[in-house]
Design a protein around this nucleic acid. Structure first.
Lengths: 345, 345
DNA sequence: GGCAACCATGACAGCGCTGTCATTGGAACC
DNA sequence: GGTTCCAATGACAGCGCTGTCATGGTTGCC
């Protein structure tokens, strides 16, 4: 299995694939008849159909959808733009979308922005150049040019994960601000008063996680209104991860040891914080309460499940896929958020 | 943002996109000149270039890569076939590949088989119909027709995650059998003797996780050779997950309470097992040793890190992307596996 | 000054398929 | 028996772009 060019069929696409024309010749019919058989369109005599299918199999013909798309101006591609694959949340959204898309015969093309809104612009252009049937993007904030492209694309566009704002066509998400408020109200109702926050920075560049920012705003506004604004916060300069959460909490506590409740930018971070507490003998929630966001499986199966807010990632992906590929009207779907009391706050 | 058809630009693709021809007219040059400017090919006078770019911007022109691909018979699409997105391992492979692909100007198109080898065949055909520049698939086992298509595709093909066998063109992976053997040797060397196994079933259908099977074989063969074959095993009839691991271990211990070491099909499952032990006061590893596979972050950041075998998922994705898009010879790249002693065995 | 050697641009065909309209040969009907 | 109708098939153009070859205008150089 090592060596150079020992596979004649491998490498440069010298091997011209068989075309419709060849299948037609083999079957003794015209190209258009083969095309019809393959697409089940128009009336075809059973005998003809059999002959064509036999030729298709004999030649190992695989239709060229590039040509088909160009001729019919309609592809089965659906572009999906995600900020990251490192946070399990987005693979879950993708997974939610993959099911319906496959069922309806669509193919996902994915692009990852690393939370960089300028990069998103480029990627959207690149996806649109494939004339997809639809486009699924994350968030409501885009560069002006990206937004213009999305509006003029002539395809359905779904914006996910955020319902705090207005969008282009279809919105499927939840209110991040509300998630922050829920966290604040829960912690207040449990009697905590000295609040801290551990968040994550952007990935590659400045373009931070805007939705985490909206949660923070909801959180801090509610606390401030109750007269107990957060006393300190630590933003780890790294993408969200368990390790980042662990470091972040350590830093924060080193600086402000008397906090009694910590809100994390998400469950990954919160779980890291939880591990920090376990490793350092900090009683949770007796000594320190922890609150996350997302209700990831990993945080819920632990013996002491995380206090958090559940978001319906799979459902968001699923609904978005369905709407983008259907002919539903423009709309905003709020899948809501739900307090998960857990055992850490 | 709710209501029907309030966006004139939304919905059916009635809005014909602007074409090269229109840009050419606007700029007062021929189509081919615009094409050259956009692709940076051939000599172009600076003044002409500026005029063309101005027209492109003015019209908001987005090239149609479908037409481009058809004309030049070469796309920038790379098909990626993964068994699942529910297991973080595959999003990580995808993430590893996404970087280099983006850098080299390629676009990933993904397909998910749910561990169904028949479905894989369909998906491969579907991906090939887009005449991708390359194809990345998981595993070495395919249906005969799928394998024939891959061989005749005329594109580079990489098969990932498994080096125990022969492949079509490029292989990037590690030996699952060896991973199983490492686990067995480690547990033996630690003095454990009464072994159990907790595995996961297929996803949708019979087509189980073949690579987990190879690990099991390596594990059990080594143990048998040492005179201590596994005493019991529990295969949970569900996709791999933390919850499945937790249930699986509970079942297994209910039936065989005297086991002293458990090998899990992967870290998700093992972490579930660990949580079962925590919740039921089973001392790890004193009373029961736990061993996983993959060395996921989540298992390593915990206070008591999982004993497991590290696999280089990101690296596999990265190398595969590079090789598939380059003109390297057919080859097998074994990224190896590495024992992670951890604290659970 | 004349010929080569470019540079910058264009004309044309065609990638592989599908939409549209046209054509054929029966079966159905009065 | 002639008209009508429809099922079954085909001819043709064209989707939007790029490869190939051709063309006009400059520059360089002996």
């Amino acid at each position: 299995m090592t060596g150079t060019m020992d596979h004649p069929t491998t490498g440069r696409s010298t091997a011209r694939r068989t075309t419709l024309t060849e299948v037609a010749q083999q079957a003794g019919v015209s190209e258009i008849t083969v095309s019809r058989v393959l697409r089940d369109s128009g009336p075809i005599a059973p005998a003809t159909r059999d002959r064509v299918m036999a030729a298709v199999r004999a030649l190992g013909y695989v239709p060229n959808r590039v040509a088909g798309t160009l001729a019919s101006s309609g592809s089965n591609l659906v572009g999906i733009v995600l900020p990251s694959l490192a946070n399990i949340v987005f693979p879950e959204v993708l997974r939610g979308a993959a099911g319906p898309l496959a069922t309806m015969g669509y193919q996902p093309v994915i692009a990852v922005t690393e939370y960089d809104i300028a990069r998103e612009e480029t990627l959207i252009e690149s996806l649109l150049s494939w004339r997809p049937a639809g486009l699924i993007v994350t968030g409501l904030e885009h560069t002006p040019r990206a937004e213009a492209m999305l509006r003029n694309a002539g395809v359905r566009v779904a914006e996910l994960m955020d319902s705090d704002g207005t969008g282009i066509d279809i919105i499927v998400g939840f209110s991040n601000a509300e998630a922050g408020r829920i966290a604040a109200r829960h912690l207040l109702s449990r009697g905590y008063r000295r609040f801290g926050y551990v968040g994550h920075g952007g990935g590659a560049t400045i373009g931070a996680d805007l939705r985490a920012g909206k949660r923070w705003t909801g959180f801090t506004t509610t606390l401030a209104a109750a007269g107990h604004p957060p006393l300190d916060k630590e933003i780890v300069d790294a993408p969200s991860s368990i390790a980042a959460g662990r470091c972040g909490l350590a830093e924060l506590l080193a600086r402000s040891p008397h906090l009694d409740a910590i809100y994390f930018s998400n469950d990954d971070m919160a779980l890291g914080g939880y591990f920090h507490c376990l490793a350092n003998g900090i009683a949770v929630p007796g000594q320190l309460a922890l609150f996350g966001h997302n209700a990831l499986d990993v945080g819920q199966v632990a013996p002491q499940p995380l206090s958090t807010v559940r978001t319906a990632r799979l459902k968001i992906g699923e609904i978005a896929a369905r709407l983008v590929c259907g002919d539903a009207p423009s709309q905003k779907v709020d899948v809501g958020v739900e307090l998960v009391e857990g055992a850490t706050a």
